[in-house]
Nucleic acid binder design. Structure first.
Lengths: 311, 311
DNA sequence: GCGCAGCGATGCCTTTTAGGCATAATGGAC
DNA sequence: GTCCATTATGCCTAAAAGGCATCGCTGCGC
């Protein structure tokens, strides 16, 4: 036997069960009373159970009718909610958003973006994934990640990856306040190269050495890395000791703050950018698009902030 | 805007979403492919969200489609369950059944009936209410009780109450095995009346004294209640002591068991019945009817058991 | 590179069914 | 009994689902 029960039957039944009167329920539903009468009859025949007791003064619910009313209300509510959820998902206001991020590079844009996004789309669960650059790309490609906030990936891995720059940071020299160079306003590449440098470990951070090559390309001298650190924290410690200076991103200031001083490199324009990474193929969900919009807005505000005097 | 989404749309959508192919889904649903195509289009237009990505090799679900598929499956399942519940309720296999009972009188019929009923209708929650006779009637009338298992109510309170006898018990004499009367096979009213009797308290059990009046109506002598007890337990203790004998229902044997001996009253045919009490007006639920059937069956079996030899 | 196979969409017509109108049947209240 | 409000029935109309033929698309194999 085919079930042909439709939501219409349920809508009609709840109306009658609530009005306890076919005529009034029909008026409310904007259908004629006989049409309503017949639909309810069809429903009862289909279920095979009397749901209503008719009388010349209206109707009463049988105990089966009472149970069915509860069920029916719940069902109609859930049907509405289902549609609402799907619409919310399409508007980017529902669902999950998996965002990969590199903690240090994203330090400036991510926290305010997350805050703004949660305010704009509170029903979206944002799942943050702290990932290294290569793993982030892998997970963007396999679809477990919607977006990544990262430094610009090198061309050889970014085949199916789209990168959109949000912020560009120059490199500068970080050093302890007591270091002799701290008296200078800016430094030249030759000067820097004459000093022993604090850097990241050659094994784990090959891209750092590629960067140094780029920075020092204009001059003949090559810098000497006297101390190799395994991360920005140990680098900070080493620099604070005051024995050496280091080439770092402007962003370093955001992380390390006022414990060090920073000096421009007068004869270098090298910079790196951080931004949004996503796949070219797979569509970013609406929530992802919304998050991108907010990231762009945050980046725009950060740019304007810089031109204003510090608060 | 009126929602005209129907369960048909959901059924069709799940079919397509599971087959990932309109043609095959249509075949499964036994409708033509264009009809299915159109229904799905209608659904998408109504929700205002694309649920499927069409391609010449079939369809894939959008993320909205995936969410809607989950929701839809759940909804269709719940709709089926709702109908199943209502049908089960109508068959007396679902819902709640509130049964009032007087513990002592119902001791023989109720336990086996409950066991049999729970086996026959495991999804019905039977709520047992241990109630005194007058409260039971009140709660039958106000509808919080479907059935009562009790002694026959007196005519003055049973206006809207229907009583159906299940079992009839004679009265007999209970006494300690060591009592002189224990040697006799049966006792006469005159003999009994000559002895001091153990009885129930005059204050709480007026019907017990009406009963004694009925039993001793055929003879001139009136029995003398030497000890008044506040219930069957204390009566049992008193009788075991062996100082006196008591007039009790045959049922007493079921409660007190072999700790006492029981003797027929040869010249009395007085008896009392226990049975089902229900309202005349309010319909007993199907589960209630089912329970009544089982009670009758249990009573029938008890009657036959008696004719067979014990053991 | 072209045709073919398989798929979904479209146009048009048929069938089914929901719905409307008039009216009958029902059954308490007086 | 009559009246009244209420639900049910009969008949017709309108709307919507469904069926058939066909188109258009696209990816694959030759």
């Amino acid at each position: 036997m085919d079930l042909t029960m439709e939501l219409r039957h349920l809508r009609y039944f709840t109306a009658v069960a609530e009005a306890l009167n076919f005529t009034r329920a029909a008026a409310q539903l904007r259908v004629a009373q006989p049409a309503l009468s017949r639909q309810i009859q069809d429903l009862e025949v289909e279920i095979g159970v009397d749901l209503l007791r008719r009388s010349p003064r209206g109707v009463t619910l049988t105990s089966e009718g009472k149970l069915f009313l509860e069920e029916t209300r719940e069902l109609l509510k859930r049907a509405d909610e289902s549609v609402a959820k799907v619409r919310a998902l399409a508007r980017g206001e529902y669902g999950e958003l998996h965002v990969g991020y590199a903690p240090s590079p994203s330090v400036e844009v991510l926290p305010p973006a997350l805050a703004a996004f949660q305010k704009a789309a509170p029903r979206v669960r944002v799942v943050r994934h702290d990932l290294a650059s290569d793993e982030m790309i892998a997970r963007l490609l396999d679809g477990t990640l919607h977006l990544g906030i990262t430094v610009e990936p090198s061309a050889d891995v970014s085949g199916d990856i789209l990168f959109e720059e949000l912020r560009r940071y120059r490199f500068c020299v970080a050093l302890a306040a007591g270091h002799p160079f701290a008296r200078k306003k800016s430094l030249k590449l030759e000067e820097i190269a004459s000093q022993p440098l604090v850097g990241l470990s050659r094994r784990d951070y090959t891209e750092y050495y590629q960067l140094l090559d780029r920075i020092f390309a204009p001059v003949k001298t090559r810098p000497r890395i006297a101390v190799e650190c395994d991360g920005s924290t140990s680098m900070l410690t080493e620099l604070e000791a005051g024995n050496a200076i280091g080439i770092v991103s402007e962003l370093f200031r955001r992380i390390a703050g006022r414990r060090l001083v920073y000096r421009r490199v007068s004869d270098s324009i090298e910079s790196h950018s951080i931004g949004i990474a996503r796949t070219k193929k797979r569509d970013v969900t609406p929530a992802g698009e919304k998050f991108c919009d907010i990231l762009r807005q945050v980046a725009r505000e950060l740019r304007h902030e810089k031109t204003k005097p510090k608060g």
